[in-house]
Design a protein around this nucleic acid. Structure first.
Lengths: 148, 148
DNA sequence: ATACTTGCAAATCGTTTGCAATACC
DNA sequence: GGTATTGCAAACGATTTGCAAGTAT
């Protein structure tokens, strides 16, 4: 038997990885190497829109490998934990937004691209109250645009 | 009991079917039997939300048969023609709304059900202008709710 | 040690498409 | 008759899942 290792992960964590690990734990997720890799790419504070496909490519670029299914599972776990927001387009695929605050998007159907709507472009006057016994969990405004 | 008709093609159109046929023609669509059947279910003026699956079931209930692919194609044609509006949910499937005016929805994720938001619950203060060279083609607001 | 997580491939889901048969005009 | 439309099944892309192997606590 190997003696008890004070280090949680087999490979020692860099300082920034430690921080991500803590963030994951705080979200109720075990800090595994692949989750940390994904967190390093997405949870650095910058706001981005990523498709699972894109993300898989980025991970590959770092030299690490994460299985396709795991990328999906991880994105869903992060979303359930409130670390990401999922947005489904009229085009049958999802993108994940690292900005979990309520904000809205332009969807350019011609190029299948999402853009944030500048936050000062206030569009919601007020939210209607949810029906009895329900509460609002998220609000998505997608404004589809096409080249004219 | 549905009795098999040896010559289904020869069946004349009922008066209400005539009206639907005209509506389809006006939309640039040939009034075929299956399009009329679908129009009869969806374009009667009532506002509903239907999934392709649901619709297929309803058609079957009338004793008529329309192939699955045709249901999808027809819904898309109707949507392109402006007769329906397509709404994609965070759940990887679409529903078609017979109300083509701009209005918004509650999405009850627990039961996978859409509800219209009462039109007097104004939520859009103003629309941001579309980026250069683009114009707004549609606006979808989906407010997700969960039982509390 | 135990429970959770991953990898991988197969499976599933919703939707689209190709092509021969068929209906509409 | 000529063209649009249908039926079906196969094709599809995105996403999920089952299970054995690996890892966290």
């Amino acid at each position: 038997m190997v003696e008890k290792n004070p280090n949680p992960l087999a490979r020692p964590l860099a300082a920034n990885e430690q921080k991500l690990a803590d963030q994951l734990r705080a979200a109720g997720l075990r800090p595994t190497r692949q989750r940390i890799a994904i967190a390093a790419l997405l949870l650095d504070g910058r706001h981005r829109h990523v498709s699972p496909e894109q993300l898989t490519a980025e991970i590959a670029k770092t030299g690490m490998h994460v299985a396709g299914g795991t990328v999906y599972n991880t994105l869903n776990q992060f979303t359930d934990a409130g670390l990401l927001r999922r947005i489904t387009l009229h085009n049958e695929h999802s993108i994940f937004d690292t900005n979990v605050d309520h904000h809205h998007h332009f969807y350019d159907a011609d190029n299948d691209k999402l853009t944030d709507i500048a936050s000062d472009d206030v569009i919601l006057a007020h939210l209607p109250k949810a029906p009895d016994g329900h509460e609002i969990s998220s609000v998505d405004v997608v404004i589809s645009i096409t080249a004219k």
